[in-house]
Deep mutational scan, measured.
Amino acid sequence: KELVLVLYDYQEKSPREVTVKKGDILTLLNSTNKDWWKVEVDDSQGFIPAAYLKKL
């Protein structure tokens, strides 16, 4: 599985998104959309702007 590093805090703005903190390491589930990547946070899944993430 691929991991990503969160570069900036992000507060979810819709139920399909997730809240993350700078420095979090998350599992990347889908990066086919260049603007929004799907990640797994704890036991939930959701989208975060790709610009907030860096592949490890």
Rank of each mutant, 00 (worst) to 15 (best):
E2N: 11
L56P: 02
I25S: 01
Y52W: 06
Q11M: 12
W37R: 01
Y8E: 12
P49H: 04
V39M: 01
D9Q: 03
D43C: 13
Q11T: 14
D42I: 08
K34Y: 07
V39F: 02
D43N: 14
S14G: 13
S14T: 11
V4T: 02
I48E: 01
N30H: 07
T32W: 09
L56H: 05
S14D: 11
V4S: 01
E40A: 13
E12I: 15
I48G: 02
W36P: 00
A50P: 07
N30F: 05
L28H: 00
E17A: 09
Q45G: 06
R16Q: 12
D9Y: 05
W36I: 05
Y8C: 15
S14C: 12
N30Q: 11
D24E: 11
S31F: 05
D35A: 10
K34H: 10
V20R: 01
Q45N: 09
W36E: 04
K55Y: 08
Q11S: 11
E40M: 12
D43Q: 13
L26N: 00
W36N: 02
S44F: 14
P49E: 03
T32M: 10
L5F: 07
V41N: 12
D9F: 04
V6C: 07
V4G: 03
T19L: 05
K22D: 02
V4F: 03
V41W: 08
L56I: 13
V4P: 00
L29T: 05
K22N: 04
D9N: 08
V20P: 00
L53G: 05
S44V: 15
V18S: 04
D43K: 12
P15Q: 09
A51T: 13
D24R: 09
I48L: 13
S31L: 04
L3Q: 11
K1S: 09
D9K: 02
V18W: 14
L29G: 02
L53T: 04
D9P: 05
L7G: 00
G46P: 09
A51R: 15
I25P: 00
G46D: 03
K55R: 12
N30K: 06
G23H: 04
L53A: 09
E12W: 15
K13G: 08
D43A: 11
Y8S: 09
Q11P: 05
Y10G: 01
R16S: 12
G46C: 15
S31C: 14
L3C: 13
K54C: 15
L56E: 03
L7P: 00
A50E: 04
T19I: 06
L53M: 04
Y52H: 09
L7E: 02
K38Q: 14
T19S: 14
L53N: 00
Y10D: 01
Y10W: 08
E12G: 15
S14Q: 07
K34W: 06
L56A: 04
V20F: 06
D24W: 15
G46I: 15
Y10I: 02
V6N: 00
F47G: 02
D24P: 01
V39G: 00
L5Y: 09
D42R: 14
L26M: 04
F47P: 03
T27N: 09
K1L: 12
V20Y: 07
T32P: 04
W37S: 01
Y52G: 06
E2I: 14
D24F: 06
T27E: 07
S31Q: 08
K54P: 02
E2V: 13
G46H: 15
T19Y: 06
E2W: 11
L53R: 00
